[in-house]
Design a protein around this nucleic acid. Sequence first.
DNA 1: AATGAATGAGTGTTCATTCAT
DNA 2: TATGAATGAACACTCATTCAT
Lengths: 205, 205, 205, 205
Amino acid sequence: MGAMNKTPSPKEKAIYQAVLTLFEEGADLNSLTVAEITGKAGIGKGTAYEYFSDKEEMIAKALFYNARQICLRIYERLKKEKSLYDKMNLILIKMEGQVTETSCIIKMVHVMSDNSIVSRRLQAMEKESEKEMPAVEMLRRLLLDELGEEVLSPEKLSYLTMCILSRVLCYGMLLRDEKYMPEDSREKMRDMICRGICREVEEIS
Amino acid sequence: MGAMNKTPSPKEKAIYQAVLTLFEEGADLNSLTVAEITGKAGIGKGTAYEYFSDKEEMIAKALFYNARQICLRIYERLKKEKSLYDKMNLILIKMEGQVTETSCIIKMVHVMSDNSIVSRRLQAMEKESEKEMPAVEMLRRLLLDELGEEVLSPEKLSYLTMCILSRVLCYGMLLRDEKYMPEDSREKMRDMICRGICREVEEIS
Amino acid sequence: MGAMNKTPSPKEKAIYQAVLTLFEEGADLNSLTVAEITGKAGIGKGTAYEYFSDKEEMIAKALFYNARQICLRIYERLKKEKSLYDKMNLILIKMEGQVTETSCIIKMVHVMSDNSIVSRRLQAMEKESEKEMPAVEMLRRLLLDELGEEVLSPEKLSYLTMCILSRVLCYGMLLRDEKYMPEDSREKMRDMICRGICREVEEIS
Amino acid sequence: MGAMNKTPSPKEKAIYQAVLTLFEEGADLNSLTVAEITGKAGIGKGTAYEYFSDKEEMIAKALFYNARQICLRIYERLKKEKSLYDKMNLILIKMEGQVTETSCIIKMVHVMSDNSIVSRRLQAMEKESEKEMPAVEMLRRLLLDELGEEVLSPEKLSYLTMCILSRVLCYGMLLRDEKYMPEDSREKMRDMICRGICREVEEIS
DNA sequence: AATGAATGAGTGTTCATTCAT
DNA sequence: TATGAATGAACACTCATTCAT
């Protein structure tokens, strides 16, 4: 019932933050335990159940909330960059390093395509709140800022959004597989990706 | 060392097939149980442990094996298509429908980026067997067929491979998020994607 | 560190008592199951793991605690006997009958010399708590009461302690092997043992 | 059916030897597995079941057989020693060191007083074969050699046998508890024990 | 006779969830 | 409202035993 719209209570925030921290510490979201979460949050196990109906809700809402906060933050930061190229480049640079803000967002994108219970919760939340995944929302806004409202058909907007998201995932995968990549090689790679995105946006719009 | 190279024994195959079937039935790979797997495979629980050291190995090897088989099959099928555009389009078409061969491959790509135990197993297998993920291997081969060996620098080849993979993932996500999309809308989307891929390949190579 | 020093909580006591009861019912300590123990203790299986890290700890601590309690009780009882002969005789008499308090102590002595996990736990507890096995502690105190502190060299004290303990074990074995022994025959045996002990104590001290 | 009386077949001997070796390697008799035993014996798992009805029989018979062989060997060796004192002293010296022939015999004595299945098997074998535990048999023979047949009442003979056995156990326990004991200290201890035994034998006989 | 692949009953342990305080 | 002790269902994994070859 639109829980997503209210400002979370301090206890809820504590849970959200705990999940984020655990994730940043390298935990596997699928094997997080309630004890770990509430322990990290500094509240009692029973208390968590006053605010969430079960473990999956804790994690799903935490992912959603955190991804949203991070996206808002990144969005503000990106405003300072002039060109689309620079904006994209900044996002890619932010993906380097083991665990980053960005990877939390990416994680959420990933989880969306599990068949896990958390995944189904996230999808339900998306439906219910009529909000898209924060990452998608951010990229869409970025595109609208760039191209002006209503220039694009919804289809093209969807395409371009996903297109950018996929490039970002792509860079993430490259970083994983060839993490020995030296910085100058990474720079070339980022350049190819950013130019690819810009080209595509021009082409489509 | 290189267990991946041997032809799997009938029992191993039974396990692999069972995991595939369960996945096709919508199971969450992270909450598969050994009892489910061996039950579906029609063998005793203990028997599985004669061939695999633990549950994670069963699932990881099953994913790897199945993805490989499917990729080989798709690769053969793609040979019949003349142009890169048609090849890509066929891959995308194959992704439609709730559970498909392709989505099994995509699943494996996903799992690779969990922090789950299965994920770590897959990564170890990749290292050890010195084989890439089947999906990557297939796309790379496709590109080499298209452009001829050694025209591309390894960097560009990696980039293009990931680039295509991420587009495919992207289409998968679009299908999920807006699955109400009517067929003609999907067709437009596929067209944009395939053209995007072709454009990129030309541009880079 | 020194968990042995605290008064056990009610749940811990329930576990200790359950192990004792099961042992009295003739169970093999090596094949006790957690389900049996917690069932007999009247608590949930999970609860036991709030107080003990694993099954072996349950059994080892139970043996230690029970043996200690029993030894304290016997020690008080023995104070009423005047002579060493009478004290020893009382201990031997207490050993008759299939399952007795004494046999619980003996059991612990036995377990100490397994290579079982429980055995290693007991030995570790002995080290850590810097307390000897309750049976040894009791006999040593008995000897000190008899002979006065510091009359004996530590070596001789150790020797005499073990000497008595081994006689008691010996009587236990005789009872097992020739349990058809009529009472008057047993009495003669006890007499020989007690006289042997007294003779030895005099001789050595 | 008196299986104890026949010379064991080569496969049986292999099992017996395997159990002995495993024991010498520090295995806990309670957690030996059939796979370990047959593996060490170099025969198939199924084969073992042609000769033994179950795991417990394997272990019980192995203990009995091995203890018997060892006792015979020790008995022959002891003949070379002139006095009872020297014989006893030799036995004690043989007990030093972590795992020894002697400790195998002691182990059997221990197992006899478990409530384990193996223990019950051993007791049944003792009954059925009308043979005592090898260690007891050996000590009894030793005493008869020393004192001549039929000087002693059966009761006194039993007492003295157990008396010696208990001293040996006693030394074993001392070695465990104070294994830091320097050699000269151990020598004193052995002296006390041997003199104790001799004194007792004289006294009683 | 000898084997070892196959089995599944049995066990230790975990952890989401509840509820008395 | 907040807690965490208590719970027991659920699960991975082991291993004695069987039986087809």
